[in-house]
Design a protein around this nucleic acid. Structure first.
Lengths: 339, 339
DNA sequence: AATCACAGTGCAATCGTTTGAATTGTAATA
DNA sequence: TATTACAATTCAAACGATTGCACTGTGATT
């Protein structure tokens, strides 16, 4: 296996001094003779010495590592969030250990367990779409491990949160469709065990009520973020006697697929059906018609969550902080019937 | 900070037995009295004991962890590859530590250093687009750490590789465009320090030669995977006196943006310009015209690389294995002028 | 009664660090 | 000359596990 690696002991032995002195020299501790220190550093370089992080962390009871549990990296939102997390963490000298739950509660539990056993200094969590039990999360909180939820937060748990204005933005988005003259607006909702999804749906519902629109259950589709069923529910929606003239979709990929299907059916977008997506992916600008969407700042959320977490780790006491990172409505052609 | 956690010592003390026995009991070692073992397990559960992985790994000189260095998770190819990596690794009881180089040599170096200092049992690497020096990689190889390159391999280094038939598939793709009657085929190439990119370009060049097409330097664009410059080079290409009638693009996003620009210019795809992408993203099926592309099996490459790595870790000797995972040409509307 | 086998357990070293306390040697002070 | 101060160093314990070896006690064998 891996070749033998030199340790602090080797340096000590060769130089005929004690491990302690070597350690202090390497850590630039004040009371070690300049000449000795020089020799230690020189030999360390020569022997290609690198401290064993396992040993260091075991002794120090800190790992300088933060653990991240996210649903999936193929979900672009999370891929971007990881960018923000790493940026802030690395800048502060922390490493990041990323685990995917693959959108399952089981793996989420395992991930959490492993990260805790690995003694990460703190946790960043965005729960899976399956997560409807919180024992494992509560467990981490009880252990007083600094923990920050981001995006897919669990509202009722006593931990810091970085969240976005899901309710408001969906209210706003729905009103936008209403203002475009849509009468029957379909809403493609996410898994309702997620706080985010519930909020989004509520934003839609309240906007409808506030504007005296009739709410029809048949226009609300509950999905769980898989793309496979888009064709099915779209077909169902447009086989209705009163088919939708507006759609607020759960994410841009769904929106794009819906548009694709509708266009094949000979429907004009936005004339016959106005479409609004979610996430504001780059691709939205490159298709026809260009896609209106909700800009949901993934990178910023990841970065903010990490900042809060680091603050908490350094503060050495648990203070709950809630930070709102606002999403905003980006109107393009797919929902613009007026211009 | 985190609440005190129980250790093997606590169990030993409370039960009035030695740490050794506790350890053996917990590991289901054969020669420990059944009754003692029962009590240990019971108390362990009661105290919510979990072994400290740092200590365990330090002692065992193995971490059951494999380190992964990739350019970026926002690159969908790598996001998918991670899926394959985790699947295989977790199934074998290994954890995965993912690091992003953000496409820089500097961070790649750092990542590698951290992973090695963390004593990962093996490494999976896909190099950054900047990587034109290999000292850090050679260093890991010299240390005899099991290492597998995947996708963005470095050919000349003595390590296992999981790669795809870049040359062949680009030869094939180019011939496909030629067969569609394209006379002036532009090639959007990747960073030429990458072995993959060079191979792809060569596949294109050889296909052109073999078919007696004139190769024009002005039709070859060198990019470095950033999307920002698509507009510029597309404009340049189509301001040429002999503008292209076929484009083989580096990835689907670039292809889609190119099509977008061309359509705005009033050009018909594939009639006026046939377009071929790379990566076969889902989105390709949902745009108009649907995008022809190269299916580049990310998940499989990640999974294969992990299998090889694990085999190497368990074999305890370094055997170089090279595994080809074939890409294939997927023809859709954007390049189909004949049907 | 002495010896042996053996299951079960404990001792102590080890992995590679860090760090408080003790020790050494030297020079300055009283 | 004895005392003190101080810089530089070493000692040894600790972090939390694993493990080779030694030990204990019991029952079987001679």
């Amino acid at each position: 296996m891996a070749k033998s690696v030199s340790t602090i002991r080797d340096i000590a032995r060769i130089l005929g001094i004690s491990k302690s002195t070597v350690s202090r020299a390497l850590n630039n501790h004040y009371d070690v003779n300049a000449e000795t220190a020089r020799k230690v550093h020189e030999l360390a370089a020569q022997l290609d010495y690198h401290p064993n992080l396992l040993a260091q962390h075991l002794k120090q009871q800190r790992t300088n590592t933060i653990g991240v549990v996210i649903p999936e990296t193929v979900n672009r939102f999370f891929a971007k969030a990881i960018g923000g997390i790493q940026e802030v963490a690395n800048r502060a000298g922390y490493n990041v250990m990323i685990c995917q739950s693959n959108e399952t509660l089981d793996l989420e539990r395992n991930n959490l367990k492993t990260l805790m056993a690995s003694k990460v200094d703190g946790l960043l969590i965005s729960v899976s779409r399956e997560t409807n039990q919180y024992d494992h999360l509560q467990y981490a909180i009880d252990k007083e491990i600094p923990l920050v939820f981001f995006d897919r937060i669990v509202e009722e748990l006593a931990a810091s949160q970085v969240y976005s204005n899901n309710y408001d933005i969906c209210f706003q988005g729905t009103e936008h469709l209403i203002n475009q003259g849509c009468k029957r607006i379909a809403f493609i909702a996410g898994p309702q065990n997620l706080y985010n999804s519930r909020n989004r749906l509520n934003g839609y519902l309240d906007a409808m009520k506030r504007n005296n629109m009739t709410i029809s259950e048949s226009l609300i589709v509950y999905t769980n973020y898989t793309i496979n069923d888009v064709e099915n529910y779209t077909r169902a929606l447009f086989n209705l006697r009163d088919r939708p003239d507006g759609i607020f979709a759960i994410n841009d990929m769904a929106a794009i697929e819906i548009m694709h299907i509708l266009k094949k059916r000979g429907l004009n977008i936005p004339k016959d059906v106005a479409v609004l997506g979610f996430n504001n992916e780059t691709i939205g600008k490159l298709i026809e018609p260009t896609l209106s969407s909700i800009d949901h700042p993934a990178y910023d959320m990841g970065a903010a969550a990490t900042e809060i977490l680091l603050k908490q780790i350094h503060k050495d006491e648990i203070v709950q902080e809630k930070r709102l990172i606002k999403s905003r409505l980006v109107i393009r052609e797919s929902s613009n019937r007026i211009a």
